[in-house]
């Protein structure tokens, strides 16, 4: 993450505070923090973060930037490409912007994927998850299934409304195919889970035998 003031050095000081129900945050390099007196003097009764933020606002204004960046570590896309709304929740790029980088539903991560990728790389340590996984195992496949299904159903409705029956029939086939392949992969998952359980039991039995 780069420093909000000089845009050159790595920001190493992160200060954030809630104002009017919105996060205001600043990210500074050590140099700029010192230069703009965003540090405590011995006489101040307490470090006043509000004053620090006002101080930063002035520093940024002096550099021709109007406002303190709000919610800096949200993934706000810089250039707004023309993109369709999320097929699951109808969230738009404008909605993302209006809501300080927040998304509408889990499927938005899939729909706005490319748009988010760069912003996420900028605000996070890495680009993929390395922590704990949920017990319900990655549901990626399910999300993608839902997403694709929603798009196909939208297209189908359009064709039906436009009385384009040949196209509609094609889409109907595609929907059936999608559902079938999803069901097949679910069956496969269940089977491999069952297999794992059986193997696990075998393994457990072996340990018991060794114990004796």
């Amino acid at each position: 993450m780069l420093c909000d003031i000089c845009k050159k050095n790595e920001a190493t000081i992160h200060i954030k505070e809630m104002h009017d129900n919105k996060w205001t945050s600043i990210n500074l390099c050590a140099e700029c923090a010192k230069k703009n007196n965003l540090d405590a003097s011995p006489d101040t009764p307490g470090v006043d973060i509000t004053q620090m933020l006002i101080g930063l606002g002035k520093a940024l204004e002096a550099q021709g930037k109007k406002n303190i960046p709000t919610h800096q570590h949200s993934a706000k896309p810089e250039n707004l490409p023309v993109m369709s709304n999320c097929p699951i929740c109808d969230w738009s790029v404008a909605d993302i912007n209006k809501n300080h980088g927040k998304l509408g539903c889990p499927a938005c991560y899939c729909h706005f994927g490319e748009l988010l990728e760069n912003s996420i790389a900028k605000i996070q340590k890495g680009t993929s998850h390395v922590g704990k996984n949920p017990l319900n195992a990655p549901q990626n496949e399910y999300a993608r299934f839902q997403y694709t299904l929603a798009i196909l159903e939208q297209t189908l409705a359009k064709h039906v409304a436009g009385e384009q029956y040949t196209e509609a029939a094609k889409v109907r086939d595609a929907i059936a195919g999608l559902k079938e392949s999803f069901a097949a992969s679910q069956r496969e998952k269940e089977e491999s889970f069952r297999q794992a359980v059986i193997e696990g039991r075998k393994h457990a039995r072996r340990i018991e035998e060794e114990d004796v």
Binding site: H71, A75, S128, N136
Partner: peptide, 16 residues
């Protein structure tokens, strides 16, 4: 059933 993704882990309203 939690919303999650293979790449992004637990999915949250804000990417932060």
């Amino acid at each position: 059933e939690y919303a999650c993704d293979e790449k992004y882990g637990f999915l949250t309203s804000c990417p932060s």
